[in-house]
Structure formats: C-alpha cells, structure tokens
Computed example of a mutant assay.
Amino acid sequence: MHVNTRYLYLGGSYDLQQLFQEEDLTREVQERQSDIPARLSGMRQILASPMPPAIEPDHHCRSPYECPFWEHCTKGKPDRWVYYLPGGRYAFQRMTALGIQTIDEIPSAYPLKLLQQRVKDNVEWVGPGLQAALATVAYPVHHLDFETLGSAIPLYPNTRPYQSVPFQWSNHIETADGQLRHEAYLCSDSRDPREELAVALLESVGKQGSICTYTGYEHGVLTGLAHALPHLRSDLDHVCDRLWDLHTIVKAHYYHPAFEGSYSIKRVLPAVVPHLAYDDLEIQEGVLASLRFHRIAFGNTDSAERARIRKALLRYCERDTFGMVELRRALAIKTCANTSGRSEPISRALSRNLSPPKWGTEG
C-alpha cells in the first residue's frame, strides 16, 4: 500500500480508498524469498565480527538515503578525493578502476567534461561573457524566493499528495540607482495561503522589471499557482515571462574552487559573498522551513513560539533573496576586476563600497 499521488483532495473528510493505493507484490516477494537465508547469514557474520565490513565507500552509501557512517568511513580519504568529481557513480568507478585516488592525479590529457575540468583546475574562472549576461536585466530588479509545503496528506482543498503549496515569499527590489527595499509575505495560519499569497506577490512585483530567481523552482511554483487560480492566470503568466535565472548565468560564466562542482546557492553564496552564509540562522534550509511552518500553522504552539518561528522563517527567506542581490553585485565587481587585468577579493572590494556597473535599463 502506498500514497496515491493522483488523488485530489476536495476538502472535508479524506477518501481513504483513493488516498491509499494497494499494489500486489506477491510475485516479487516470492522471487526474492530464496535469497533471504544467504542474506541473513551474511548479516549475522557482520554482527558477530569485531571489525566493520571492508566495503569501499561509493554512491551506494547515499542511495536511497545517506548512511550515518559516511563520515566515519571516509575520514581517511584525501581532501580532493576523486569521489567528488562531478559525474556520479560512473565517473568515480571509472577513475578508481584506473587507480586514480585524487582529482589532482587525473592526467592532463584525460578527456573531461567542462565542469569536471573546472573542478580539476581548481582555480577561479570568470568567463568573458559574464558582464554581458549580467547586463540583460531590466530595472527595477526583483529578487524572488518561495518557501513551500508538500505534505503526503493534502492539507488544502484541491491539492494532491506531495503537491508543493507556497506559504511564503521574499522580494528584494533594486532600482537603477542602487536603492534597495524588501517586501515579504508569510501565511499566519492553517487556511489555504495561495490566493492571498499570489495577490500580494502581484502587487509587489508590479508590471516592470526582471524577476531574478536562482534555478527554475520559482517558475514551477508560479505555474502551479496559475493552474490553481485561473482568474489570476494571465497575470501570473506575465510574471513567469519576466523571470531571470541567475543560476544559469553563474553556471555558464563563473566558477570558484569552493563550489567543489556544485552550483547550489548554499555553496555558491558563501564562496562568492563570504559575509552572507547561513550558519547564523535558526532555519538554514528549505525542508526545515516547511516543517517549522507546518508547526505554527497546524501544530499546538503558544504565541511566543509562533512569534519566534515566524521571525526565523522571515529571516531565512529574506537571506535567500538578499543573497541574490549581493551575488549579482559581487559578480559585477568580478567583471570589473577581470576587464581591468587585476583581481582582488570580493570582501575587500565590497568594504571599499566599490559600486558595480549599472545593469540593464529601467522598466
């Protein structure tokens, strides 16, 4: 039995016959029964042994979930262990078969994909097209981030299991003269937040300017809102047309060794804008944000705890959008340093209030 993700909750009582779906796995179970004695014997031998099993760490250690012994089993691996070369299990196994233990040991003539080569080179790279790419925004520039809740049991009418329902957004708005203001929305109770959230968002982003996001996640959320709110579909579709993905620009035009092959905002931001990490926040990632919102919306919390969680949620979402503002500015400074033939740390440039070039045009 498993959750039927096609079940549409219409409100009121749940139709459990539709919410849960039965599947007959008798044949699969019977086919595997003959393997059980041998597997049990192997497990007992491992339990009786005074030493851990001699199993080399690999991608199986993180599938389907990360093994809690990962840190223990990899503590003796080198800093630039070839496991961290982008390319997944195939790349790792291929390198291991060649006797290569570290990324630095990969022969210079060995054919690598572009991102793999960036990781191997282990140097900062500023592409010649970065400045032009940054200049494609139109002012005022909005920086948008959503937080969503996706529950196995639908919580709102006309939603399905695991459907992402936005409950919060943050928008940092930068004008052409560099002025910055922040606007935000956070649902405060258990009611369906989508229409109120969407109306507030449409008012915040207005009709002009690029809407900066990091990855295409916000596009998916907006598309879901347009489907759920047909009377707002046209306006939400226009918002989608204005999206400007900073993630694709960074991937195409910039690399920093601290990325270690990942372009996640949680990896990119601390590397490029060191003073804007997430370690000072109570909530530091989206899954915890969803859990905390569920707690204040549907849990039994007192007013003090609700206020504390709301503050933490607002700070976390605000950090994401302010991070995009600072990331754009820092990358613009990088282009200045690159075109002038010299380089300097971003932190030093920011401390001198070095103004980035004007990007795009108003409206």
Rank of each mutant, 00 (worst) to 15 (best):
W125C: 04
L112I: 09
Y65W: 14
T136H: 08
R89S: 12
G99C: 12
I100T: 00
Y65I: 13
V82Y: 02
K75W: 02
L114V: 10
A135N: 10
W81C: 03
T102Y: 01
P107E: 12
M95G: 00
G88P: 03
M95H: 02
D79Y: 11
I103Y: 00
P111Y: 07
P107K: 12
A109L: 13
V82A: 08
V119W: 00
I106L: 12
L114H: 11
Q117K: 10
P86R: 13
S108C: 15
A109D: 15
W81P: 01
W70F: 14
R94S: 05
V119A: 00
Y65M: 13
R80Y: 12
V123T: 04
L112E: 05
R94E: 03
Q93D: 08
K120S: 05
K113P: 00
L114I: 12
F69M: 13
S63F: 08
R94K: 13
P68N: 15
D121G: 08
H72P: 01
F92D: 04
G99A: 06
P86A: 07
V137F: 01
S108M: 15
T96S: 08
R118T: 03
P78M: 08
G76N: 12
D79C: 08
G87K: 14
T136N: 07
N122Y: 04
A132H: 10
A133Y: 03
G129Q: 05
Q101A: 13
W70T: 10
A97H: 11
T136R: 10
L85F: 02
G76W: 10
T74C: 09
G127S: 12
R89N: 14
G87W: 04
G127C: 08
E66V: 15
W81H: 05
T74M: 07
A132N: 11
A97P: 03
G87L: 09
Q117D: 02
W125A: 01
R118G: 03
D104M: 11
I100E: 03
Q131M: 07
T136F: 07
R89P: 02
R118H: 09
E124I: 05
L130S: 01
P64L: 11
L98H: 06
S108P: 12
P128K: 13
D79R: 10
K75Q: 09
